[in-house]
């Protein structure tokens, strides 16, 4: 080492001669952790293929001794309203997303590019509301929906989320950085303010909107709290609510079908994640620092 003429070159040369023990050690630790992290997913999958008798023997085998095929998946789809849950999940998550985008984009544009009286107050309210989770206004919202006779409906499941202050905040950041000169060019070209927003400015913020879409869909597909409060009927239940109810009814006797159901309900988002990892991670961690 001391003979190496160039200090910077020495570690690289050394690493070519010796095995990179540090790297191997890190890999070993990470492999162990990866196994631990994946274990619940593995259990979920493998249990959905095990026969009941095997489940209740006090021995653990890595693979099912007797392969049940898609038996539990078929059972899960035919005997419980899994597909209905998924349909509801899609309707509610997309309905919320569409409303959030339609309301947040104009407001964010006004906050980003217009000067008007009350703008700072509105911005302050948005920032305050950012910190308030759904559990805070839940009681009055429930009473209000009940008074209007709207409980147990898609509308009730969606309405508290029609406004996303997070979307407003995020889009405002994105719109602010849109060049004023292009907006002015559009005004000279004769576009209306509404057309400038939707046809000129919004296309420039597609990445931010896509990231928010991932964030919003994940959040509301997975939400248990609010559906638990306002949804009663089976045919309106979202995947988490349906699974919670279903698991309860089954009371642990049919683990195979339960795990099959869990797999089916978890699969869509996981697939999206695997296919578009970068965008997905960006969307989900958006609440974090950039």
């Amino acid at each position: 080492m001391a003979a190496a003429p160039n200090h910077r070159a020495s570690p690289r040369r050394a690493s070519r001669r010796r095995l990179p023990w540090g790297q191997i050690g890190t890999h070993l630790v990470l492999l162990l952790l990866a196994v631990l992290f994946l274990f619940p997913f593995y259990v979920m999958l493998v249990t959905s293929f095990r026969s009941p008798s095997e489940l209740f023997t006090p021995e653990f085998h890595l693979l099912p001794q007797e392969f049940t095929g898609l038996k539990y998946y078929i059972e899960s789809i035919t005997t419980s309203p899994v597909l209905t849950f998924m349909k509801n999940g899609v309707i509610i998550a997309l309905g919320i997303l569409v409303m959030q985008i339609l309301t947040a984009i104009p407001c964010a544009y006004a906050l980003a590019k217009f000067e008007f009286r009350g703008r700072n107050l509105l911005l302050a309210l948005v920032i305050f509301a950012l910190t308030v989770p759904i559990q805070v206004p839940a009681l009055p919202l429930y009473l209000g929906l009940n008074a209007l006779g709207l409980l147990d409906s898609y509308f009730a499941a969606m309405v508290p989320f029609f406004l996303s202050v997070f979307a407003i905040f995020l889009f405002r950041q994105s719109f602010k950085s849109y060049p004023d000169e292009i907006i002015q060019a559009a005004r000279l070209d004769g576009l209306s303010e509404w057309a400038i927003l939707w046809r000129i400015v919004v296309p420039g913020s597609i990445p931010a909107i896509a990231a928010f879409a991932v964030f919003s869909i994940t959040t509301h597909w997975n939400d248990l709290y609010w559906p638990l409060i306002v949804i009663r009927s089976n045919e309106l239940m979202t995947p988490p609510l349906g699974l919670a109810t279903f698991a309860d009814v089954e009371s642990g006797e049919n683990y195979g079908a339960l795990m099959a159901t869990a797999t089916i309900l978890t699969a869509p988002l996981m697939l999206v994640f695997m296919l578009a990892q970068r965008q997905f991670v960006r969307g989900v961690t958006m609440t974090g620092v950039k």
Partner: peptide, 9 residues
């Protein structure tokens, strides 16, 4: 990315 309720079960 996993649904919390599903993973809880």
């Amino acid at each position: 990315t996993a649904t919390v309720v599903a993973m809880a079960t």
